[in-house]
Every structure is written in structure tokens, then in C-alpha cells.
Design a protein around this nucleic acid. Structure first.
Length: 410
RNA sequence: GGAGGAGUGCCCGAGUGGUCAAAGGGAGCAGACUGUAAAUCUGCCGGCGCAGCCUUCAGAGGUUCAAAUCCUCUCUCCUCCA
């Protein structure tokens, strides 16, 4: 375990939005160092979707940092809570998920989460283990500890209440269940996104009420997506999935706007705080080329998710395509054979559509007129071009800078 | 149950009888530039072997030489009242 209190606090604090309360954290960490007794750091994940993206890894990274400092993670799979769905930030009730879906999601979710976490220091539990055994009486007991007024302090509930939108009583149960999770695992610290602040605080209150030491709530900011403004989300299409190919991740990270780069360093890497400050300074002063820092960022992220080998390969491929404008090594093949019926020639527009390079003839024509189409590096100028099929085998069809297909005719 | 409002291209949103394949923005794609797939600038952005034609403005009918625009019905959403 890291014995230096200052250092621990600095690492824990890196990138956080809020720590409630800092004072308590100092005491509890100091205590754990003296007694050599690792803290129990809780993180609850609701498997409501099968895949996670970098936005989800922000809290996972923080948890990993705790582990690297010598603490233990308690990862709670919210299989029970997922059925209801966290109403945080929601303006309406969300549809219930089936148990089957939840189990399936939980599987892929965990696999992806352990790309970040240290399994040796992770206790994995499902909250159905304790929640499903509560009797109605137990639940009444729990609900009596909370008030409607307190619930309505939460912004999204307040808005809905004022706006005369429905709030199901069940939705009030969500924060209570999450709070009870903290009691069940006796958490010392709970991590969550800023949207979780209310729920984390409820955990504190319930623990106090039930005679436990209240957990410290550590909240992390919401990660911006590749567009640099909206939060990262699948539906906005600005996400980087942890299961994407390394080369894809590399490119996507390189495409984030420069001004959110330091946020990415703080939230997605586990570099030492001094290193991050240095990078930040360099960028501010303009003394270092931002693209070099961004390359480093891309490599680190791929290293965490895959390996340093994969990171290196991804970077090489990136250079190949963008720096030297060459053709990458592994190109998706496209079998033309099935698409042709007895003809010996094919119209270039048709070839583009058949290979999936263009959605319609119109788009194909457009691409040609914009000078975006190349065959083996040679620009196609004429949209009426007819090609001998036999001459096309293994030729590289290119659209724009970064889309390649190898044509196979055998 | 009653009164009123709204539904337009991937998204937001203008358009109230012809000049509308439909302004503007965003997203996307391409080109230039560069330090990158950043930023910036430019072009494209329904379909069709495309100087022409075809199908679009919630859905179905109707009026008209002509409809996103007018009428009728249906569906969906919102606001107010009970």
C-alpha cells in the first residue's frame, strides 16, 4: 500500500468533480495507512446496455487507481436495480428490462470492465443477493427513514413534479436501494458520476442512520464525446467503445478537439498527477506539439484496453494512412464474384455501390466528381468508366482518405 | 370528458396555393490546408446509367390547371380545464 498520505490524496483527487467530504477522506485514508487496512471502495454498475464506452471507464479508472494504491474494490452488479432503471437525469420512466437481457448485458459488461480493473483486488457481487430477500416489512422500515421532501430535492424529480409529469413511487425506491447496497457491503467510499451525487448522499445518510460510518462520496465528471461538447453516448454517435479495434480507437482519440485533451488525460489515464500537470503546462504554453500529446493519450488508452503491442501497431497504421498517405496492410476484402452475372465489365458507379463504398448511385457519382475515388492509388475521373472485371482482382478500391476495400474476383 | 396547439428531409427548424427536391443550422461525406480523423475554409448532402425522369413535407381521401401549404377523416404528441 502507498504509505504517503499526501500522495494518495493527490491521486484520488485527480480529475474528480467533488469529494464529500474531503476532511473525512483524509481521516479515513490516514487511518487505513496506519492500520494497514485497505478501504472498501464501492462502485455500482447497472447492466442496462451490453457495451461500455470510454465514458463509463472514467469511474472504473478511478477505482483502479484506488486498487493501485492498495485498496479493495467492491463492484456491485445492479442486476436488481437495473430492472427499474435509474431515473437520474431522466425526464420519464424508462422501460423495464427482462432478467434475461440483464444477465446477458452483465456478462459482456463485466468482461469489458475487467479490462480496466485489477481482478485480484475486486470483490464482485450482485445486489439481488440481498435486495431480493428483503421482506415487505424490511422495505417499510427502510422507506420510513426517508421523506418525500428529501426525494423532491433531487433536481430531476423536482422538475417532473413541478411539470406535472408522472413519478412512479417505484422510482423513489431506486436511491433507497442503492443506499441499501452501501449498507450491505459496508462501503467506505462510493464512486459515481456527477449524476449520482444524490444517490451517493442517500447512501451516506442511510449508513449513518443504521449505525455505520458514512461513506465518502467521490463523483467524477461526465466525459465529453469525440465532438468535444456533448457527453459521450452511443445514441449521439460520439463515443469510443472499449471493444472497438485498436486502430479505430487510435483514430477516434486523435480526432477529439485539442481543448478537451487534458480532461481525457485526467479521466482516462492513470499517469501520475505531476506528469499530467506537465502535459497541461506544455499545451498551454504551446511549447509542445499537441499532436504528440494526443498520440501519447491514444497509446495509453489502447494499452489499458489491449496491450502496448496493439497500441504500437495502431499508431503505425495511423501514420501509414495519414502521414504518408499510403495504403494500410489489413484491408477488408470484397468479393465481387457474387455480384456479377456473366458480364465481363463493370461500371465504376456500380462497383462503388456493390462494395458498400457508396449508398446509392447518386452518392457514387458525387464521390467521383469530388475526386474521392481511387483504384490502386489512381484517381478515377470519369463516372462512366467501365472496368474489365478480370483486371480487378486484388486491386484496392479507395474512397476518400480512410476507406479501403480489396476487390476479389476469384 | 371539454378547449386549444403541433406533427416538414438523419436531427433541429423555416416555409401558409405555383418561382419547393423544400431556407438556415447541426450531423455526415468529400476536397484544400495542417500537427491529427483538431481547428479553419470550400463543395456535396432523396432516388434513378442523371442535361431528363420518379417518389417525398404523420397516414388516408378530397378541392384545384397546380397542394408541404386549402377541406374531411384517422393516428401520434403537447398545453390548459375537469
Amino acid at each position: 500500500m502507498e504509505k504517503d498520505l499526501e500522495k494518495q490524496l493527490q491521486i484520488i483527487g485527480m480529475g474528480t468533480e467533488d469529494i464529500l467530504t474531503m476532511k473525512e477522506l483524509e481521516i479515513i485514508v490516514g487511518d487505513s495507512i496506519i492500520k494497514n487496512n485497505p478501504l472498501k471502495v464501492k462502485l455500482g454498475l447497472d447492466p442496462t446496455a451490453p457495451d461500455i464506452h470510454l465514458g463509463h471507464t472514467v469511474v472504473l479508472n478511478k477505482l483502479r487507481q484506488f486498487q493501485d494504491l492498495g485498496h479493495n474494490a467492491v463492484l456491485i452488479i445492479g442486476d436488481y436495480t437495473a430492472r427499474i432503471g435509474d431515473p437520474s437525469g431522466r425526464s420519464s420512466l424508462r422501460p423495464e428490462l427482462s432478467n434475461k437481457e440483464i444477465d446477458r448485458n452483465a456478462k459482456t459488461y463485466m468482461k469489458q470492465a475487467f479490462k480496466i480493473l485489477d481482478p485480484e483486488k475486486t470483490e464482485l457481487v450482485k445486489n439481488s443477493e440481498w435486495l431480493k430477500n428483503l421482506s415487505f416489512e424490511d422495505i417499510l422500515g427502510l422507506t420510513s427513514r426517508f421523506t418525500v421532501a428529501r426525494m423532491l430535492e433531487r433536481d430531476d424529480f423536482k422538475k417532473r413534479f413541478k411539470g406535472n409529469l408522472p413519478i412512479a413511487i417505484m422510482e423513489f425506491m431506486y436511491p433507497i436501494m442503492q443506499a441499501y447496497d452501501s449498507v450491505a457491503v459496508e462501503a467506505d467510499v462510493e464512486l459515481g458520476g456527477t449524476d449520482q451525487r444524490f444517490n451517493l448522499l442517500m447512501g451516506r445518510e442511510l449508513q449513518k442512520d443504521m449505525g455505520q460510518k458514512p461513506q465518502i462520496a467521490v463523483t467524477m465528471p461526465i466525459l465529453a464525446g469525440t465532438d468535444g461538447t456533448e457527453k459521450m453516448s452511443k445514441s449521439l454517435g460520439n463515443y469510443i467503445g472499449v471493444s472497438e479495434k485498436p486502430s479505430e480507437i487510435f483514430g477516434k482519440v486523435m480526432s477529439i478537439p485539442d481543448n478537451i485533451m487534458t480532461d481525457y488525460f485526467k479521466l482516462l489515464t492513470r499517469l501520475r498527477p505531476e506528469e499530467i500537470f506537465d502535459i497541461e503546462e506544455d499545451i498551454k504554453k504551446g511549447s509542445a506539439n499537441p499532436s504528440i500529446a494526443k498520440r501519447k493519450l491514444s497509446r495509453i488508452i489502447i494499452e489499458y484496453l489491449y496491450s502496448s503491442d496493439d497500441a504500437e501497431k495502431a499508431e503505425k497504421e495511423f501514420d501509414l494512412i495519414f502521414k504518408r498517405k499510403e495504403i494500410p496492410e489489413d484491408i477488408e476484402k470484397f468479393n465481387l464474384k457474387g455480384k456479377i452475372a456473366g458480364n465481363s465489365r463493370i461500371w465504376i458507379v456500380k462497383l462503388l455501390v456493390d462494395s458498400g463504398m457508396a449508398k446509392s448511385n447518386g452518392e457514387a457519382r458525387r464521390l467521383i466528381s469530388q475526386g474521392a475515388v481511387k483504384i490502386n492509388g489512381k484517381k478515377v475521373e470519369d463516372e462512366n468508366l467501365e472496368l474489365e472485371i478480370d483486371s480487378l482482382n486484388e486491386k484496392i478500391l479507395q474512397r476518400g482518405k480512410r476507406h479501403f476495400k480489396k476487390i476479389m474476383t476469384v
